[in-house]
Every structure is written in structure tokens, then in C-alpha cells.
Write a protein that binds this DNA or RNA. Structure first.
Lengths: 219, 219
DNA sequence: CGAAAGTGTGACCGGGTAGTCATTTTTATT
DNA sequence: AATAAAAATGACTACCCGGTCACACTTTCG
């Protein structure tokens, strides 16, 4: 939570500051990200940052919360009940995630990098909390399917949930490793993560669904 | 590759140095790992390290090569041809990996941490090379099964290979997240990663195989 | 034994960081 | 316009790091 000083700032300046730091944290680890560098880019004094935020972690958490909130606005409208099976729902989450990416490239890049941020000791604790929330979310999804008799019940729900989470991160990672997306480059060019790659993204999603379906579904 | 000076050292001293650095790199990122701290622990001068190795990266690569070589001695004896199906082979890889872990805890911890080392910019390039080798290895495994008609052929081999790789890392990660193993704690106590947890390890392996089998197998 | 070669040393260098705070500048209020 | 309050500033502190190198110590060998 930023200090009052930050909230009182003109929206335009808030945005500039927010975006400069999103950009930094999107290409660097928490520990590697340098406040000194960002303020140089922004043309403001380092002291100002500490007038706006308690410390580096406070600034970082603000960005996490803000980005998660923005993304939620896109995905929260989707309801599992409106889909015949889990996989149609799952696929649509990517469809709407793509929309989020197009319209909020910096937040998207930031969240994208967050996923790969496991390390950085000063933040590990906080990161693990976030991660376990995410995983619990996936476990809930799996549990719902099991209860409705759509997912198999001969494997622990925890395993189903975790593997589902892994399925999601695999899609992202494979796109990156295979060179279809290149976040570092995109952010430099000011482009979204998946710019012009919607077909490729949805194709990989479809491949993974085709692959994973028999693992999760009953029979 | 260490300098001659290091090779000429008494085996006992080599071991002390190797193990002190394995321990450091097993709990820290490459960039966070501090040579200054390790030499303090070892009671030798920092200059000595630079008499033994070109620089930090040279030292690190030596440890990687050494650890990979040690682990290979355990897993390379296993041949796919000796198993009725892929999953029996896959399971045995963990069985022998467990053996490696028990007998070479520090190397095991080091390799374990390496997997989660994605970040650290000074090493990213090198890490990506290693990773793509590993993934190519998994793709080869998948390709072999596809050719022999045991794995499905309606999904790209790349996807099969990558997901297989993810299957492996998921097992490790879930054990850690669920608290069954705690590398940071184990290394402090001087214990192997999977100390006393063989049954739990093999149970998770079995769960994941049960889960993944229908995803990969034909029909 | 004595000299040369090899090995060990740690103060030091240049570079980086997050965070502080006395001071100045800007803004709001009277 | 004068005063008070709020905000911006940047030099500074305290702390890291990897890597160097002139020097000291040990070993080798003629």
C-alpha cells in the first residue's frame, strides 16, 4: 500500500511511475531490479520514491496487487457453469488472458515475469504465499470436477490440482523456449507478450488440452 | 575447467573446497552466492580461489559438470530396452536418482537447486543451453516411444517431450511445496534431499505416472 | 644450501545497492 | 503577500560484491 503522498499525485504521474517500475520488475528479478536506475529514467529523485512507498517491497506488492486486480477484471467474468466441460472453460481463460495482454501489456509482462521469479530470497516468503494461493485455486477447480464426476477420483486431488497448475505454466514456458514469444524483446519494443501470436498461443493451448484431457477425465 | 593449481591440490583439500561451494550454490542463486562468505568459512584467502579457477563462472561450471557426471554414473546404467514400457523405466530413474541422492547429498542438493535457478542474468545463457539439452533429451525419449507406436502421434513430439520434462519437475516441486521434502533444512542438517522419504517420493512418482499415462499412451 | 618456481594472502579497487535526512522548492492557506 | 505545510531533492551512509596484485611464504630441484 502506497503512502498518501503517492495517491495524491496526479493520475498521469502515478501512471508514469507505476509503468516505469512495472517495466523494471518485468525484466529483472526483485533483487536485481534497481530503484536507482528507474528514478534516473524517470528523472525524479530517489528520495521521492520513499515519499511514495515504505520501501522496495511495499512498492513491489503494490504492483502485484494492481496487476492481479487488472487481470481479474478480464478473467473473473468467466464462469465454469457456463461451459459444457472444464476444457472449454480452460481454453477461454487463455482467450481472455490474451485480451488482457493486448490491453495491458506492462501488467501482463510483469505478471509473466513474476511466474518465473521463484528465486530472490528477500521475496521468497511472499512469493510462496502467492503461489500457494494460486495452487489452491487450481485444486479447487479440480475438486469441483471430481465432485461432479468429470475428473477421475483415483488420483489425489492435490496431484490433479498441481498438475493442472503445471499445465498452465508449461504452455507459457514452451511458447517462450520454442521462441514463439520473447518477452524480453517484446517489452523493449513496447509490445504485449503475445503480440500477433494469438493463433500460435491458442494452438499450443489446444495441443496441451488434447494431451492432458485423457489424464484428467474419467475413463 | 579448474586451473592446474586446483588439480594439484591434495584430494582432501579439493573436496573441502568443492563441498563448501556446492553447499553455497545449493542454497543460493548464482548471483547471490558469495565467494567472500565461502572463503571465510573455509578459512582460506579469496585470492586462492582465483588461483584455482578463472572466475566465478568457471568455478560454477566445474561444479555443474562434476555433479552431472556423478549422477550419470547412477542413471546411465538404465536402458530403456530392458523395460516393458516407458513408465517402468521412468519410475526406475527415480529409484536410482534416490540412490544417487543418498550417496552424494551435496551434489544432489546442488542439482536440485539448479533446476530452480532459471533466473540470474549472468548465467542465463549457460543455463538455457543446459535446459535445452535436457528438454531435447526428453523429446528423444518421446520420439522413441512414438516411433514404436507406444505414445500417441496426434500431438507434436515437442509437446510430448516438453510435458514429459514438466512431469519430472512437477514431482520434485510438489514434494517441496507440500512440505514432504525441505531442501534448505536438509542441507543445513547435512542430510540428503529425500532422506527417509523414499516411500513418499515413490508414491508421488506412482501417482503422477498413473495420471500421465493416459495422456501419453496410445488409446 | 640457495635460488627459482609455485602457492597463498588480504588489503584494496571500482562498482553496485537500499535507504536516510537536512535542505530547498512547491503548493496551500490565511 | 506572508506564512505554514507538504513534497521533492540528492549527497551521503553503510553495506555488499568479484576480482587484482604486490608481497610473503613453501616447495622443488640443481
Amino acid at each position: 500500500m502506497p503512502k498518501e503522498t503517492f495517491i495524491k499525485l496526479k493520475e498521469e504521474k502515478q501512471k508514469q511511475i507505476r509503468e516505469a517500475f512495472l517495466r523494471e520488475f518485468a525484466i529483472k528479478t526483485y533483487d536485481e531490479a534497481s530503484i536507482s536506475m528507474v528514478v534516473k529514467q524517470l528523472g525524479i529523485a530517489k528520495g521521492s520514491v520513499y515519499q511514495y512507498f515504505e520501501d522496495k517491497l511495499d512498492l513491489f506488492m503494490y504492483l502485484v496487487n494492481e496487476s492481479v486486480a487488472v487481470k481479474s477484471k478480464y478473467t473473473a467474468v468467466l464462469k465454469r457453469e457456463n461451459y459444457p466441460d472444464f476444457w472449454a472453460y480452460f481454453s477461454d481463460l487463455y482467450e481472455y488472458g490474451f485480451q488482457f495482454d493486448q490491453e495491458n501489456p506492462l501488467n501482463s509482462h510483469f505478471l509473466h515475469n513474476l511466474t518465473q521469479n521463484l528465486n530472490s530470497p528477500s521475496i521468497k516468503h511472499f512469493y510462496n504465499e502467492l503461489l500457494s494461493q494460486v495452487i489452491t485455486g487450481f485444486e479447487k477447480l479440480a475438486e469441483y470436477e471430481v465432485e461432479n464426476g468429470l475428473f477421475r477420483s483415483d488420483v489425489p486431488v492435490k496431484t490433479l490440482g498441481f498438475f493442472l497448475y503445471k499445465l498452465g505454466s508449461s504452455i507459457q514456458e514452451q511458447l517462450e523456449i520454442s521462441g514463439i514469444i520473447n518477452p524480453k524483446e517484446s517489452i523493449q519494443k513496447g509490445l504485449p507478450v503475445y503480440f500477433g501470436k494469438k493463433d500460435e498461443l491458442m494452438q499450443v493451448v489446444a495441443d496441451y488440452i488434447k494431451l492432458a484431457k485423457p489424464a484428467f477425465n474419467k475413463n
